[in-house]
Amino acid sequence: MREGEPGTQLDFSGQVRAVDGTPLAGATVDLWHADDLGFYSQFAPEIPEWNLRGTFTTDAEGRFMIHTVQPAPYQIPTDGSCGKLIAAAGWHAWRPAHLHLKVSAAGHQLITTQLYFDGGDYIETDIADAVKPELILAPTAKADGSGNEVVYDFVLDPA
């Protein structure tokens, strides 16, 4: 993230395991998300090209720790045919705050998912209808008051 990144600091950690519970050392966790204002790098001016995007590798126990910021909800584009459909249906055009992830390990199937934040705006009314209970994170305040932390584990099926 850029120096001085605004927003609530978030420590996101977890473990990547195989279905049988074996930790997957060297698994890859790709993460990308919007910033505190709901903007993505590569889609908004004045944001560094790879801001809030990264690839992380798990340790010998399949664990990862990512220091980032909590993203904000954002509005999808409302121009063109998509905008016409949204208007005709009377829908709002908002996505809840979320983290995009791809988790992979040799010999296992790739997981591509999004994780959402408990209590966040648009959780119940996501325009993409993608929120599922098992994908909702419940961050807690860090003991030192420097932001929030959350743990989420991934289990990969064999390839």
Score class of each variant (00 low, 15 high):
Leu135Tyr: 09
Leu156Glu: 03
Ala44Asn: 03
Leu156Ala: 02
Glu124Trp: 09
Gly83Cys: 12
Pro45Asn: 07
Glu49His: 14
Phe43Gln: 09
Glu149Pro: 08
Pro71His: 08
Phe56Pro: 05
Ala106Pro: 07
Met1Phe: 12
Ile111Arg: 05
Ala25Lys: 04
Ala138His: 14
Val69Gly: 08
Phe64Met: 04
Gly4Ala: 11
His108Cys: 02
Arg53Lys: 13
Leu31His: 12
Arg2Thr: 13
Pro73Met: 00
Ala87Met: 12
Lys102Thr: 08
Gly119Val: 01
Phe154Asp: 03
Gly4Gln: 11
Gln9Ala: 15
Lys142Trp: 11
Thr8Phe: 07
Thr112Ala: 09
Asn148Gln: 14
Lys132Gln: 09
Thr57Arg: 14
Asp118His: 14
Ser146Arg: 12
Val131Lys: 07
Phe12Thr: 11
Ala105Phe: 00
Thr57Gln: 13
Ala27Val: 01
Ala141Lys: 13
Leu99Trp: 04
Ala105Glu: 07
Pro45Thr: 10
Gln75Met: 03
Asp157Phe: 03
His100Phe: 03
Glu46Lys: 10
Gly54Ser: 10
Ser41Cys: 14
Asp36Lys: 05
Gln114Ile: 00
Thr22Met: 05
Ala72Pro: 00
Thr22Pro: 06
Leu31Gly: 06
Glu61Arg: 10
Gly62Asn: 04
Gly21Arg: 03
Phe56Trp: 14
Ala60Phe: 03
Leu31Asn: 08
Ala105Met: 01
Cys82Asp: 14
Lys132Cys: 02
Pro96His: 08
Val29Cys: 06
Ala143Ser: 11
Pro48Asp: 15
Lys84Pro: 01
Ala97Tyr: 01
Pro23Thr: 03
Leu10Cys: 09
Asp30Gly: 04
Glu46Pro: 01
Glu46Ser: 13
His92Arg: 12
Ser41Leu: 09
Val155Glu: 05
Ala143Cys: 04
Thr78Glu: 14
Leu31Gln: 12
Leu137Asn: 05
Ser13Gly: 09
Pro6Tyr: 06
Ala143Glu: 12
His67Lys: 15
Gly145Tyr: 15
Arg17Asp: 02
Gly80Pro: 10
Pro96Tyr: 04
Thr125Lys: 15
Pro139Arg: 14
Val19Gly: 00
